[in-house]
Structure formats: structure tokens, C-alpha cells
Computed example of a mutant assay.
Amino acid sequence: MALNTLQKRLCEEHDMDFSHLTALFLNCTLKPSGQASHTDALLRVPQSIMQANGIAVEILRPVDYDLPPGVYPDMRAHGFPSDDWPELCEKVMAADILIVGTPIWLGEESSVCRRLIERLYAESGKLNGKDQSVYYGRVGGCIVTGNEDGVKHCAMSVLYALQHLGYLIPPQADAGWIGEAGPGPSYADDGSGGPQNDFTQRNATFMTWNLMHMARILSDWGGIPAHGNQRSAWEDGCRFDHPNPEYR
């Protein structure tokens, strides 16, 4: 069925400005930079869409950084000789949009992804200028690849963590691809069918636009309204219409 005039105009023309936004993609592959990554290949879809709309995009691999385990902002203060998280964290905090990419291993996100989430959690005690979690006003999504089951499970785990920290998760904020169960081709392998898979490409496109729209809305409105979510106000006794007046 051919696009009608309205559909074609909506697809090809819009007056929305996304050029003031920035996006950071963290590819939690186990492979250091320079090695081919199937997760990276799928991340190129949202990268292309965002860049076509003027968004500055950076793709990094946490495996390239020295990120010791821990839930503190700088693990050098807790016995480790080095910690690159403060450097990577600066890039996280500078981005309006965060996409976490991960391969699937044994049905779960990669160990690199889980460590990234722990290090993101290390910053959750910090507050922004509105006395909210420092992650408020940002949006998050995820990309998952593999040749075994687990796309939705991994997306559930990653997106739960991001929203718990304070990221806003728009509708349909994940996309993924898996081949047949068991050994077989991965996303970017010749003949895998991944780059031609309509379901995967549609979800990756919808995810990207939903992230862009939500980030733009937050930017236009100055983030999440600061009422009912300020920690110091709660600590000072403000209960924001909490129904139990005896609660202290």
C-alpha cells in the first residue's frame, strides 16, 4: 500500500528541532574497540537517525575503560589503584539521551553492562539543581543483540535500572535482534537477516524517535517538574499530600 499524501509529509517533513540535544551510546560488548561488534552494528541505526536530525552522538565501549567493581563514584578512594569512571561519568552527565547496548550471554546482559549499571548507581545519591536525582531530565533506552533467547529479559533489566536511577523511559524504548536458538549467525554476520529484519528495524526506528521526542519535550519544559520528588523537602518534613498524616 502506497503512502497517502499526509503520511508521506509526516515521514519526510517536520519542523522539530533536535539539534540542541546530545546522545551517548554505551556499547557493553566484551570486545575492545577495533574488534567487530554486532551490538555496535545495530546501534548504527539510531545513530544514523539521530545524526540526520542534528543530534550529536558519541558511541563508546565501557570495556575500553578501567572500571573496577563498586557503587562509589571513585573507587580509588576504596582501595583500587585506578578508576576511569569519573572520566566516563562526565560524558554520561553531559548527554540528554543514553542508550545502553548489550549482547546476550546465557540469557543475561553482559558482565560489562552489569558493571556499567553499578557504576551509574554510584552517582544516584547526587542531586541536580532542582534537588532531584541527578539523572532526572534525561531519557534512556537500550539495544540488545545475540543468537540466543533473552532480548526482552535483558531490556527489562536495563530499563528498570535506568528508570530507578531517574531516567525517563519513553514508550517502546528498546530494540533487539536474535537469530535462531543455539549456535548460528549473529546480527552483522553475512546472511543473518538481521539488518533486513523488519521487526528489528522498525523497533530500532521507533525507539530512536521516541527517545528524541521525549528528550526534546524535557528540554522544552526544563525537565521533570520539581514537586513531590525533592529529597531535602521530604527530609525537612514536607509530605506532598502523602495520605497518612501520622507518618514521620
Rank of each mutant, 00 (worst) to 15 (best):
F80E: 08
P73H: 03
L116A: 03
L67E: 15
L60P: 02
G141C: 02
D83M: 14
I59Y: 07
E109Q: 15
C142G: 07
I143D: 08
I117L: 14
A77V: 13
E87W: 03
I104M: 01
G137A: 02
H153S: 10
K152D: 14
A95T: 12
T102A: 04
N53G: 05
L67N: 09
V151E: 12
L106S: 06
L60F: 09
L120P: 06
R76V: 01
A77Y: 02
I97W: 08
A94Y: 04
Y135D: 01
I97L: 08
D149W: 11
V144K: 06
D66N: 15
Q51L: 13
A94R: 12
V139Q: 03
M93V: 06
R115E: 14
R138T: 03
M93E: 13
M75V: 05
H153D: 11
P69R: 13
L88S: 07
A122T: 01
T145P: 08
L120N: 08
S111K: 09
E118L: 05
Y65V: 00
P68L: 01
C89K: 07
G141F: 06
K126P: 12
G137K: 05
N128H: 01
E108D: 15
L98W: 06
I59K: 06
L127P: 03
Q51R: 11
G101D: 11
R119T: 00
S133Q: 00
A95Q: 11
N147Y: 05
V134Y: 07
G141D: 12
H153F: 15
D66C: 14
L106Y: 08
G125M: 03
T145L: 09
S110L: 13
G101S: 07
E109A: 07
E148D: 12
C142A: 09
P73M: 03
I104C: 05
I55A: 12
R138D: 01
L98F: 00
P86H: 11
R115Y: 00
I117F: 01
I99M: 15
P62E: 09
P73L: 01
S110A: 10
P68V: 07
Y65F: 10
N53I: 10
D96I: 01
M75S: 02
K130M: 10
V112N: 06
R76F: 00
C142L: 10
G146M: 11
I117Q: 00
G79N: 04
Y121Q: 11
E87T: 06
D149V: 12
I55W: 15
M75R: 08
H78Y: 09
L88K: 06
Y65W: 09
V100W: 03
S111Q: 10
D149L: 13
G140T: 02
D74G: 04
G70C: 01
D64K: 07
D84Q: 10
A94Q: 14
V92K: 03
I59L: 10
W85I: 00
S82I: 11
T102G: 04
E90N: 05
D84F: 13
E148H: 13
E118T: 00
Y135Q: 01
V151M: 11
I97T: 15
